[in-house]
């Protein structure tokens, strides 16, 4: 009975934490960051379960962090155009880690999905205790954002051509 009150039903199991750490380690955001640190970080990440067709966020919502698709499928849409379909291991919404800005597209689950939130709050607290790793992460984040910008520029150029 006491476990019912004191255990966090949202807390990820150790297998799940291992899974989250593995996915993040293979992502460009956590490049060159040792797995044990990513695992420690994963313990405090927020695992959420979404049903099919449930909205994760909408364009104009305020973003609090980046989101990893642990399981399921998420569709990214802007003005009814599908921009991307994301599956297990993909991440999105990373702009919110860098800036207090509004979401620029809709994110909707197309299947029952398990998503992992890595919030700006978590990142700031991590930087306070692990500034070197935090700096490495921020470099990776800058690189990811630059890549996204480059892709957007290419799309624009194609559209104009």
């Amino acid at each position: 009975m006491s476990n019912f009150f004191w255990d966090n039903i949202f807390k990820a199991s150790s297998d799940e934490i291992e899974d989250i750490a593995r996915h993040w380690c293979s992502s460009p955001l956590f490049k060159n960051i040792p797995k044990r640190h990513v695992r420690q970080l994963a313990e405090n990440m927020h695992v959420r379960h979404y049903q099919a067709h449930e909205t994760v966020f909408r364009e104009g919502d305020q973003g609090a962090g980046t989101i990893l698709v642990l399981d399921g499928e998420v569709c990214i849409k802007a003005r009814n155009n599908t921009l991307a379909t994301l599956e297990s291991g993909d991440f999105f919404g990373e702009i919110a880690l860098a800036e207090n800005d509004k979401r620029t597209a809709d994110a909707i689950c197309t299947r029952d999905s398990t998503l992992v939130f890595f919030l700006r709050q978590d990142l700031e607290e991590w930087i306070e205790t692990e500034p070197r790793l935090g700096a490495a992460f921020l470099m990776n984040l800058a690189s990811v954002l630059a890549q996204r910008l480059h892709q957007a520029n290419q799309l624009l150029a194609r559209g104009n051509a």
């Binding site: 959420r48 305020q62 609090a64 939130f117």
Partner: peptide
């Protein structure tokens, strides 16, 4: 889920 990010933002 619908208020998760907003709740954290306000807290932050």
């Amino acid at each position: 889920n619908s208020s998760f990010e907003l709740g954290w933002l306000i807290y932050h």
